[in-house]
Design a protein around this nucleic acid. Structure first.
Lengths: 362, 362
DNA sequence: CTGAAAGCGCTAACAC
DNA sequence: GTGTTAGCGCTTTCAG
């Protein structure tokens, strides 16, 4: 027994290394060399059943698990994908994460979820961390304000990851420039917004406010663009446009809607930037003693799982979030060489429920 | 240059190892030894400003990031905590994960989220994985059916993790036995259920059905026990109890409620096992043309973020999920030695909204 | 068929 | 101050 070695290690690194079983101990117990143990456990080399059994028995008896770090060091590291989101408690992001996780797990990859709270600094730290850990695939999710800082930062991620043989996927955010080794997968926000605005227009609404703009944010800007395009296409004058830049989140939606109601702006419908904003708006409308859709129609965006349980059930745009996550890893892994620089657009569709009616006196 | 080495490596392991910068290259560029580079980067050893700067400059120029695996191997691995949940798309679990993540990130720990879909097999695989990766803290979240298989499995986790100097935290699930090196942190489900049942009782309800039992599941059993205790305490006969074992989830709640309504059981209130079940029940009640709380009162459990947006806003039991996650890591890390075997109970409280009224003709 | 030995990239004694 | 060196636990030639 190399007891002294273990004692020394134990003393040296605190309790962290206390008795983790190594391949050497398994080898000793099985009466073979470490090379043989490695071979049977890796299973990629023919080993006679007899020795094989002895080794397996020893490993089981000692409850041995290989040290992933040592393995990674020598080359055969575990394949790992990292998803970076603003927060997991947002239903939309959670679904994306679930999609990534499911697709990754299905391929035997490990999935790491990191959250940034929307802070670019934390995003950078996390990506750096993933480089250290040797993630083979990094997926950045969610719209961003696209400025020079963003472009520079992401260009750096892309090149660094690429140099290390890893891939970068941008979900719902733009490539920082041409010829950047990053894959982008996103929804056609403009088309979705155009469609749902059209739905409101068809119901007879002419005074529609867009609640939840976030100037500079690519996802919201696209939604606003779709809203504007639909209005214009219906022949409405530019004055008909009314976008409230209150940003996202239930609280923001609630506050902005309450203000709007207080000011008595003359509108008959609201297009919320996403379903959480819609939740806040719905609440504010109820608190003002008004009713949806009788007094005001409301539509959202994303079709989060509980949108059906709002009061009333929300008409919204379905963005298959889980599929977005799955697609991100599937595409990135399918054809790595070709994937770099590619741009995939996922379709969306309207889900009609009970939050839209014809405007009063129509 | 050791170009041949890199060529060989590149050829050997595909593109994965393509050109990752090592500490040696930084050392060469800075004209110092690897030890010096290590020293300045670790920052735990005095190094003259002049060399320090040279090294830092070289590292930056090469965009060097240390290999976390090599670091972990030699002892100073990154501290990592793993949370294992059924799914991230459940608002409750997502909040717990967020709490763990926040508390971990705040201490400079890396947080890994794994999902099992409720499959013990996948849970085991994931824990094994975490052992391989050297996680120092593993947090298992969510109620389980507590059978021999469970006890054996978790006892194994606890002992294996403990032997490797890691800790196991059980959130909302019981310790598999006495003297097991695991910390348990959970809500007082029985008290919460007792309280909310009492709320219904106080409103005048006498025929209350518990929707969402899951026999054997520790969390639900405790809730059922609280419900029964409250009923008994109010002097109601055992026949007043009515628990429907439909399990959790919106779909289950919807289906079970629809059936109940169809069978015309005489009840005036329903206590849903959790808020998702309540969502389904609310929907079924609405589809049956009945109204909450006028015709039937409904209460839930957990107070998920959108419970306020249900129709009507749901009266429920608030279980501070994020705090549960934070507490799990805080307690586990605060006093590691003492934490093993400890049992922490977190309090809950009722949140009154609009889904409860006095029963008809009361 | 199996063992010995050479590292993977890094840190931490231990020299000088 | 800084370089040299010995491993960490594992996989993988290369011999036998």
């Amino acid at each position: 027994m190399a007891a002294d070695t273990y004692e020394a290690k134990r003393a040296g690194s605190g309790m962290a290394a206390k008795g983790r079983v190594t391949i050497r101990e398994v080898a000793e117990r099985a009466g073979v060399s470490v090379a043989t143990v490695s071979r049977v456990l890796s299973g990629n080399y023919p080993v006679p059943p007899a020795t094989r059994t002895r080794v397996l028995r020893a490993a089981r008896a000692l409850d041995y698990v290989a040290n992933a770090h040592a393995r990674a060091l020598v080359g055969g590291g575990r394949k790992m994908v990292a998803v970076v989101l603003r927060q997991v408690t947002s239903p939309f992001y959670a679904q994306v994460a679930e999609g990534v996780e499911a697709e990754a797990a299905g391929r035997g990859w490990l999935c790491l979820v990191g959250t940034t709270g929307g802070d670019p600094e934390r995003e950078l730290e996390f990506v750096q961390l993933m480089r250290e850990e040797g993630a083979r695939l990094v997926i950045l999710v969610g719209g961003v304000v696209e400025d020079d800082a963003y472009r520079e930062r992401v260009t750096h991620y892309a090149q660094a990851l690429d140099a290390a043989g890893a891939r970068l996927v941008l979900c719902g955010r733009p490539a920082p420039g041409p010829d950047i080794p990053a894959l982008v997968v996103e929804f056609d926000n403009e088309a979705g917004a155009h469609a749902i605005t059209g739905h409101l227009l068809s119901a007879g609404h002419r005074r529609i406010v867009f609640l939840g703009g976030l100037p500079g944010n690519t996802a919201l800007d696209a939604r606003v663009a779709g809203y504007r395009a639909a209005l214009a296409q219906h022949g409405l004058p530019p004055e008909a446009e009314h976008v409230v830049d209150c940003g996202l989140g239930r609280a923001a939606g609630h506050r902005a809607m309450a203000e709007l109601l207080r000011d008595g702006a003359g509108f008959t419908a609201v297009f919320a930037g996403d379903d959480m904003v819609a939740a806040g708006a719905l609440r504010a409308i109820a608190e003002a003693g008004l009713r949806v859709p009788d007094d005001i129609s409301v539509v959202g965006y994303n079709d989060i799982p509980l949108a059906e349980d709002f009061n009333p059930p929300l008409t919204t745009v379905r963005t298959p979030a889980e599929e977005l996550g799955r697609a991100a890893v599937r595409i990135a892994l399918r054809d790595p060489e070709h994937a770099a620089g590619a741009h995939h657009l996922l379709g969306t569709h309207i889900v009609v429920r009970d939050s839209v009616a014809a405007p009063r006196g129509h």
